[in-house]
Computed example of a mutant assay.
Amino acid sequence: MTSSLYPHGSHRTPLPPAAVPADGVPSPQTRRPTAEAPAPAPAGAGRPKQRDAFFDNAKYLAIVFVAMGHSWEPLTDRSRAAEALYMVVYTFHMPAFIVISGYFSRSFDASPHRLKRLITGVAVPYVLFEVAYTLFKRTAGGDPDYPISLLDPWYLTWFLVALFVWRLTTPIWKIVRWPLPLAVLVAALASVSPEVGDDLDLQRVLQFLPFFVLGLCLKPEHFQLVRRREVRILAVPVALCALALAYWAGPRMTSAWFYHRDSAQELGAPWWAGIVMTLALFGASIVLTACFFAWVPGRRMWFTVLGAGTLYGYLLHGFLAKGSRFWGWFDAAWVHTPWGEIVVTVVAASVITVLCTPPVQRLFRFAMEPKMEWAFRKDAAELARRRHKA
């Protein structure tokens, strides 16, 4: 046997030094399992990864608040109560959604697989929906000359731009010593810098950044902390105080501060107000977001399955939210009565619920989660991992 492998005797060519194996690829020294002693299957092998019901519930409820907030906007001019609710919801609904996005971006490492997912799941939907929104505004909005510009996100597409930028910068936030204070500093500087401009909605990207970084810094035990019974009880008076404060502040301040899309100077305030409002709104948003998480159920509910389709609902409901303004749905006098406001709220929650359902996800998956295998080169390491698993 030895002579057949080495026909020229015992003088063998030295082997090259062993390289560190890639993740999932066996090294030359890896002992392969034999037929007599098969390798044990890893725990949980063959089972689909279970989704956490709490986060699916939180995403669904947050997106419902987003839709209700959009439906309340036309009512705020005539109803002080609607304005107070609008301000409270806008304080936490997007921050809560962004915190969850940051929490689930902790594993982003700029590997080829994750970059592909970022392109197909964020960049491509941005291009498609930005074009679709522009065409919708040209037709339904009566603005036939509105240009298609991928540098100027219209309406809801800003979030996809922000998510793309935030995830690309995730490795940076994971290595700096004080990521959250640094992110808050960046947001405060953006709020006093009108030179940032509107390209790619960078004001929103930078001013909402601390919530994404906060999500990166959180651990499972932090969510368990805010879901304790005493926190749930305390959340009720805190929310009521926030609602009373919003009712008082409604006529005295502009709600544009909650959009985080303009600098202080662009809102007609002195530059230092941008720093003050950045810190104040960040603190208020964190408190109300904690109150929101405290009341999110942790068990499976009838709407838990809808948590996987929240981005579908978010982007699709924008056509109805804007269409309702284009088509004058809020011009009717009954809409501005208390009963009319309740109807509008129920309709908004119902529409966003339908748009998050699995049938709608299957219908629009070509735009939201395209495979696009043809667009990428085959990754040798990934192919090796697949062969090893097989």
Results as ranks from 00 to 15, higher is better:
residue 252 R to W: 02
residue 56 D to E: 14
residue 311 L to P: 00
residue 263 S to Y: 04
residue 340 G to I: 12
residue 4 S to C: 04
residue 349 A to M: 14
residue 233 I to G: 03
residue 276 V to M: 04
residue 90 Y to Q: 03
residue 277 M to F: 10
residue 239 A to C: 15
residue 174 K to M: 14
residue 215 G to V: 06
residue 292 F to L: 04
residue 129 F to E: 00
residue 98 I to W: 04
residue 92 F to D: 01
residue 173 W to R: 06
residue 359 P to D: 11
residue 350 S to G: 12
residue 386 R to Q: 15
residue 320 L to E: 03
residue 293 F to N: 01
residue 234 L to R: 14
residue 43 A to F: 14
residue 7 P to I: 02
residue 342 I to C: 00
residue 8 H to Q: 11
residue 383 L to A: 15
residue 302 W to S: 13
residue 69 G to W: 06
residue 271 W to L: 11
residue 332 A to F: 14
residue 363 L to S: 09
residue 61 L to Y: 00
residue 183 A to S: 14
residue 15 L to S: 10
residue 91 T to L: 12
residue 205 V to F: 12
residue 385 R to Q: 15
residue 89 V to Y: 00
residue 88 V to T: 02
residue 85 L to Q: 01
residue 140 A to M: 08
residue 223 F to V: 11
residue 203 Q to I: 05
residue 3 S to K: 03
residue 241 C to V: 15
residue 109 D to M: 03
residue 29 Q to T: 09
residue 118 L to R: 01
residue 82 A to P: 01
residue 345 T to I: 08
residue 282 F to M: 12
residue 334 W to M: 05
residue 122 V to S: 10
residue 358 P to Y: 07
residue 47 R to L: 15
residue 177 R to W: 01
residue 320 L to V: 13
residue 281 L to G: 12
residue 180 L to C: 06
residue 206 L to R: 04
residue 66 V to T: 07
residue 116 K to P: 06
residue 165 V to Y: 02
residue 286 I to L: 15
residue 352 I to Q: 13
residue 1 M to G: 10
residue 120 T to P: 07
residue 170 T to K: 06
residue 245 L to C: 08
residue 293 F to T: 09
residue 243 L to S: 05
residue 192 V to R: 12
residue 155 Y to Q: 08
residue 170 T to V: 15
residue 152 D to P: 00
residue 230 E to C: 05
residue 199 D to E: 11
residue 157 T to A: 05
residue 156 L to A: 13
residue 182 L to I: 12
residue 326 F to G: 07
residue 366 F to Q: 09
residue 285 S to Y: 04
residue 85 L to C: 14
residue 72 W to S: 05
residue 34 T to F: 04
residue 150 L to K: 01
residue 79 S to L: 03
residue 231 V to P: 07
residue 174 K to V: 06
residue 4 S to Y: 07
residue 207 Q to L: 11
residue 142 G to H: 02
residue 329 W to Y: 15
residue 37 A to Y: 07
residue 117 R to S: 13
residue 156 L to R: 07
residue 363 L to E: 04
residue 279 L to Q: 08
residue 341 E to Y: 03
residue 47 R to A: 15
residue 28 P to R: 07
residue 259 Y to S: 11
residue 380 A to M: 08
residue 90 Y to I: 01
residue 89 V to Q: 05
residue 41 A to M: 14
residue 352 I to L: 12
residue 235 A to K: 00
residue 14 P to Q: 10
residue 350 S to H: 04
residue 129 F to H: 00
residue 323 G to K: 12
residue 384 A to I: 09
residue 136 F to A: 09
residue 179 P to C: 00
residue 114 R to G: 02
residue 389 K to N: 04
residue 287 V to A: 13
residue 212 F to T: 02
residue 255 S to Q: 12
residue 248 W to D: 05
residue 381 A to D: 14
residue 189 L to H: 10
residue 10 S to I: 09
residue 250 G to Y: 12
residue 379 D to S: 07
residue 47 R to Y: 05
residue 79 S to C: 06
residue 53 A to P: 13
residue 166 W to E: 02
residue 45 A to D: 11
residue 190 A to T: 09
residue 201 D to M: 08
residue 250 G to N: 10
residue 282 F to Q: 04
residue 378 K to C: 00
residue 15 L to P: 05
residue 246 A to Y: 03
residue 269 A to V: 10
residue 175 I to R: 15
residue 292 F to Y: 11
residue 232 R to M: 15
